[in-house]
Design a protein around this nucleic acid. Structure first.
Length: 421
RNA sequence: GGUGGAGUCGCCUAGUGGCCGAGGGCGCACGCCUCGAAAGCGUGUGAUGGGGCAACUCAUCCGUGGGUUCAAAUCCCACCUCCACCGCCA
């Protein structure tokens, strides 16, 4: 949620931001008008309510005829208070509803435009050159006895899979490496709930445009999270944090669930796009003025992880129209996928400024002792999808896959060998 | 799933319709005292929103949401959470 007071004082900021996202900027005038009317209704209500309190008190002191007449007056006031309160509440609700739908202010410097208007910031590492026909990750995964999508589909449906043997070991090793990388960087490791209440989901900003992506358990009114960002963001909801302790950094390990609605036909082969995967996610609460720097730190830790597993990748700066409602700025790292001859997203780090904190009421005390909203940021340290890039980039002519050095102690294998049928 | 109990300003607690639109204690902050500290004494002590340059002021908030009433922490209804016991179960 954006700040109403900032909107009042600097309406142009939202106009510029909306245009960067390619969205309607007339919402600004609608908001300002509604806010004006709400404040006026609130003032009326408060004035009447103050009067009602005075009269109400005098009732208790009066007696006889005076009491009867005061009661009459009080009853009249009570009715007017009720109606004024209703008016203010109705306007307040409408304003809130509208405000909840407004995406975060885009950070200055972010590219304008849509999905294809990202800017490449850098390319890191060497793309492998094979003197044989490289296999895709699923062919490799099957011959290594690492990935079983057929049985995944049999048991759970399309876009589900089993990691078996070396595949399971690879994922556990990768995520443990990510966890330890985070711990070394000072993050608190967390294993989070994956079912959350509607408030947590809405507070994180996932029930807006992307609501159809989210699994909902109707019978219990709970949502399956698409990332541990959700339980980590809601972790400190309704709290006032110690300002001296900031930043608070958490590394969450969880399974993630996504409906992938509207992606029929895309990435149907293998485990690139699946309904359930595992992820280690960095999450940081910090002062808004430190958020920009923190964002760059999260990006640096992502790059460090990608270097550890020896993947070629590029970093892109996501354009306004592709940011999602919560992010003010977003950088993705995309790993090279040899059989697709293109880069695919393996990490994503967002600076959500105070957008989520405002919705979830996460605050800290500033140096003057006043509560302020924190900024929240998130970034990926490793996911199941990384297995795709690791298998493809580190494959050899004989169908085996070299395990990157940093992963070996975690996986317990130097080379993944094809299994005999 | 059932039965019973409880949820008050960081913590503990007072409070069964207007004198509580919230009192006390602890903690914390500041001051006095002291060579310094402890003890003691004094003062202060939340959040949100509106108005105001500001001092300040008004409103809202006693788990949540409704209701009764001129007036609700207090009465009524529903829900949530926690605790205890019973049942069932991974």
């Amino acid at each position: 949620m954006i700040d109403l007071r900032t909107l009042r004082e600097h309406p142009d900021r939202l106009r510029v931001s909306q245009r960067a996202r390619g969205e309607d900027d007339s919402i600004v005038d609608t908001l300002l008008d509604l806010d004006e009317r709400r404040r006026s209704a609130l003032t009326s209500f408060e004035r009447l309510r103050a009067e009602q309190k005075v009269v109400g008190k005098s009732v208790s002191r009066a007696s006889g005829d005076e009491r009867v007449s005061l009661l009459e007056q009080a009853k009249d006031l009570a009715a007017r208070v009720k109606s004024a309160e209703g008016e203010a509440e109705t306007l307040g609700r409408r304003l809130d509803e509208l405000l909840m739908g407004v995406p975060n202010l885009v950070e200055e410097g972010a590219p304008h435009g849509g999905e294809d208007d990202f800017v490449v910031l850098e390319e890191v590492g060497e793309k492998p050159i094979f003197d044989f026909e490289p296999k895709d990750h699923l062919a490799l995964g099957e011959s290594l006895g690492a990935i079983d999508t057929e049985r995944g589909a049999k048991v759970s449906g399309a876009r589900f899979f089993y990691l078996t043997g070396a595949g399971a070991r690879l994922q556990l090793g990768l995520l443990n490496l990510a966890m330890n990388t985070a711990i070394d960087a000072g993050f608190t490791p967390m294993i989070t709930p994956v079912l959350v209440k509607p408030e947590a989901m809405a507070g994180t900003g996932f029930l807006g445009a992307h609501a159809s992506e989210v699994y909902r358990l109707e019978a219990d009114d709970l949502y399956l999270v698409g990332t541990s960002e959700v339980p980590l963001a809601a972790y400190h909801s309704d709290e006032i944090l110690d300002g001296e302790g900031l930043p608070y950094r958490y590394a969450g390990w969880s399974s993630c669930f996504r409906r992938e609605a509207g992606s029929y036909g895309k990435d149907t082969r293998g485990i690139i796009r699946v309904h359930q995967f595992d992820k280690v996610e960095m999450f940081s609460y910090c002062r808004p003025e430190d958020a920009h720097e923190e964002h760059l730190r999260l990006l640096a830790w992502e790059k460090e992880m990608l270097a550890k597993v020896e993947l070629p990748f590029r970093v892109i700066d996501i354009a306004g129209g592709d940011l999602g409602s919560s992010a003010a700025r977003k950088y993705d790292c995309e790993a090279w996928i040899p059989t697709q001859q293109r880069y695919r997203e393996v990490t994503s780090t967002s600076n959500c400024t105070d957008f989520q904190a405002r919705r979830l009421k996460v605050r800290y005390r500033d140096r003057d002792g006043r509560p302020q909203f924190t900024a929240t940021l998130n970034g990926t340290l490793a996911t199941t999808r990384w297995i795709v890039a690791i298998l493809e980039n580190h494959q050899q002519a004989d169908g085996s896959v070299i395990v990157p050095k940093a992963l070996r102690p975690y996986v317990g294998l130097d080379v993944l060998e094809p299994v005999k049928k």
